[in-house]
Simulated assay, not measured.
Amino acid sequence: MKRVVTLSALVCLLAVTAAAPSAPAAPGAPAKAPKKHRSLLDAVPERGVLRVCTTGDYRPFTYKDPKDGAYSGVDVDMARDLAKSLDAEPRFVDSTWARLVGDLSAGRCDIAVGGVSITLPRARQVHFSEPTRRDGKTPIVRCEDKDRYWTLEEIDRPGTRVIVNPGGTNEQFARAHIKQATLTVHPDNTTIFDEIVEGRADVMMTDASETRYQAKIRPELCSVHPDEPFTFSEKAYATPRGDEEFLEYVDQFVHLATHDGTYARYESQWMD
């Protein structure tokens, strides 16, 4: 009988102990710090590699040569400088406009560059750096048609053939505004402007910076009011959401490069 009473008392004591709140730490004892997220600002120099997601199809910002796979462009040069500043080498990771944000969010790369426009849907998934430049959607057409496609109303008419590349803000803009004209999605942004030159399409609406560049290398094409585009946008570099330290570093890098002439020098190599 005595053994039963003793065991019952022990069970009660354990139950009370389990239900009681934990005792506070002794005065002066250091609190246990939460585990800190390891920033790319530390990981990239230790790794020695900066992984850069880019589409390689958007000159003058990013271009991958189909012959040798070499990357070039304004933002490619900037990415090389960013890697160097972190004591690392750039490693370019192939992506597409439809996958770019997802590739960055999934950890396939450390930063996404190449004429990336800041949008609110993208900003819900990634951080954006300080902008590199202002931009906006504007038409590019054959020069003989320059006066025919000045407004969205003049473009969105039956018989007009609008062409667009898939997966990015160009397609979003075209689908939002083209209701009567014929809209064709062309899968290759490096050859899409040839479709206009060859007469298989009439208009493409893309960022003014791209229309200026394409009009420069294709004299048959003209950019329509690039100084007064249909929309306002800004281009920037995308970094992983949650890594504030890395974002602040990229912000400082962009700020310096856009104010000391570095970015302007890279851009002039393509545009002038």
Rank of each mutant, 00 (worst) to 15 (best):
A215C: 01
A215W: 01
I192C: 05
D194W: 02
S209Y: 14
M204G: 08
R200G: 04
A215V: 07
D207T: 07
I192D: 04
I217W: 13
G199L: 03
Y213Q: 15
Y213L: 13
R212N: 04
E198Q: 08
D194Q: 05
I217K: 14
L221D: 11
Q214K: 10
F193T: 08
I192V: 13
D207K: 08
R218F: 11
K216A: 12
Q214C: 12
S209G: 13
T206I: 07
E198V: 01
I192Q: 11
M204F: 11
P219E: 14
K216T: 12
D202Y: 12
Y213H: 15
T206F: 00
D202L: 06
F193L: 13
D194M: 03
Y213F: 15
R212P: 01
M205R: 03
I217G: 15
E210D: 14
K216Q: 07
D202T: 11
R218S: 01
A208W: 13
G199T: 05
F193C: 04
E210G: 05
G199R: 06
V197T: 00
I217F: 13
R200I: 05
Y213N: 13
R200L: 04
T211S: 04
A201S: 10
E220G: 11
Y213M: 13
A208Q: 08
I196M: 10
M205W: 09
E198K: 03
D194T: 01
M205S: 14
A208K: 09
Q214D: 13
E195D: 06
E195R: 05
M204Y: 09
E220T: 04
Q214Y: 15
I196N: 04
E198D: 08
E195G: 02
I192W: 03
T206A: 02
R218V: 00
L221A: 15
T211E: 07
R218D: 08
E220C: 08
Q214F: 15
V197Y: 00
Q214G: 09
K216Y: 09
E220K: 12
I196H: 04
A208F: 05
D207R: 06
E198Y: 03
I217L: 15
R212A: 05
E220Y: 10
A208T: 04
V203Y: 04
C222E: 09
T206M: 01
C222A: 14
C222N: 06
R212T: 01
T211P: 10
E198W: 00
R212S: 10
P219L: 06
K216R: 07
I217D: 11
E220Q: 09
E210M: 13
L221N: 12
K216I: 03
A208E: 11
G199M: 03
V203C: 07
E195Q: 10
T206C: 02
E195S: 08
R200V: 03
D202F: 10
Y213E: 14
A208D: 07
R218I: 04
D194E: 01
Y213K: 14
Q214H: 14
T211D: 03
S209L: 14
